[in-house]
């Protein structure tokens, strides 16, 4: 058994060491894999705010991931073709600048999360799960039928967008950028857990009635958590699209929403580093098992089933010997 704080530092150090080793050994593919893990971790860190702290089992977080991706795809494709984007009479120039794209991704996914949250939070429990799932499908089918931006085929961006002072085409520099964003999100998450808002949210998950009695509105707390959560997942979507230089409706697919939850549960629900550990393990399994057999999802399914039935705290729970928060 080790303390959670040491475990967290250990995981971050390992996550940073792997690509540095790969750089030394000249294995750029490993760096790309590590970047993928970091970005998935970021998306799951976002979801963990809604799921772990707010107890909101959202099976539609791919919506925000996809919106972030399309924010990047649309802005970059307009910059690439030198045609401005006409929107409700406004003329918006495309851009290849990451900070602008990130900000757009965050704002759009936060707005979407606000709308979806406002509707979905009218319900709870199973209804909430099914409704978020249905909203995910709605965006998925919309992206497929919206042929202006590639429809089912998706959108390719030829050159990765730029960040001031960095050459993002160099794998290790892009990894560093994503890693820095992940660390910021983790820091925000850690601060949030100790903040009055985080404490109230935790209480709203456990006993909404009591939170209401002390004069706080559980619905507003959960909505805020959902918006924050969506914004972070949206940012991850923009990074993911830039990693692949490709956006397609599969970023909206419900399997992705399911996988984001799986990442968190493998790592540990409501734990700071749960999503990070889960994402690293997921990408490793995907690469390693996927190399052995084409049908690696069978084994992923079996592992997941065992974790759900017998190891409820996830990996963090197993290593620290403490059960996590109940959702």
């Amino acid at each position: 058994m080790i303390g959670e704080r040491y475990l967290n530092l250990l995981v971050l150090a390992a996550l940073m060491a792997v690509p540095l080793w790969a750089l030394a050994a000249d294995e750029p593919f490993t760096i790309t894999l590590a970047t993928r893990a970091v970005i998935l971790a970021l998306a799951a860190v976002g979801l963990n705010i809604a799921l772990g702290m707010g107890g909101l089992v959202s099976l539609g977080h791919a919506v925000f991931f996809g919106l972030g991706g399309y924010a990047m795809g649309i802005l970059a494709s307009h910059a690439q073709s030198y045609t401005p984007l006409e929107l409700f009479g406004l003329t918006i120039e495309g851009t290849k600048s990451m900070p602008v794209i990130w900000l757009t991704a965050i704002i759009i996914s936060a707005l979407a999360a606000w709308g979806i949250g406002l509707l979905s939070l009218r319900t709870s429990g199973v209804y909430f799960i099914m409704i978020t799932l249905a909203f995910g499908q709605m965006f998925y089918y919309f992206a497929i039928s919206w042929s202006a931006y590639g429809g089912e085929d998706g959108l390719s961006i030829y050159v990765r967008n730029g960040f001031p002072g960095l050459n993002t085409l160099v794998p290790i520099e892009y990894f560093g950028l994503c890693f820095a964003v992940l660390c910021l999100a983790l820091l925000l998450n850690a601060r949030l857990q100790g903040s009055p808002f985080g404490l109230a949210l935790n209480a709203a998950r456990q006993v909404p009635a009591r939170v209401e009695t002390v004069g706080l509105d559980p619905m507003r707390l959960k909505l805020l958590a959902f918006v924050l959560s969506g914004a972070i997942t949206g940012l991850a979507g923009a990074l993911f699209a830039d990693l692949n230089r490709f956006v397609s409706p599969t970023m909206f697919s419900w399997q992705l929403s399911g996988e984001l939850i799986v990442l968190i549960v493998i790592g540990g629900v409501g734990r700071l580093m749960g999503p990070v550990i889960g994402a690293c393990l997921f990408v490793t399994l995907e690469h390693w098992l996927g190399g052995i057999t084409e049908f690696w999802h069978v084994f992923l399914g079996a592992i997941l089933l065992l974790i759900v039935l017998f190891a409820r705290g996830g990996i963090v729970g197993l290593l620290t010997g403490k059960e996590g928060p109940h959702v």
Binding site: L59, F295, V298, V308, R312
Partner: peptide
């Protein structure tokens, strides 16, 4: 499987049945 989940939280039900989808789909493909 399912019998163990009746008293489990919804999150566990979602995950366990999601795992079943993975197993069934890839198993059928196999």
């Amino acid at each position: 499987v399912i019998r163990r989940l009746y008293h489990a939280p919804h999150l566990d039900q979602v995950l366990a049945t999601f795992a079943l989808i993975l197993i069934f789909s890839e198993g059928t493909r196999w």
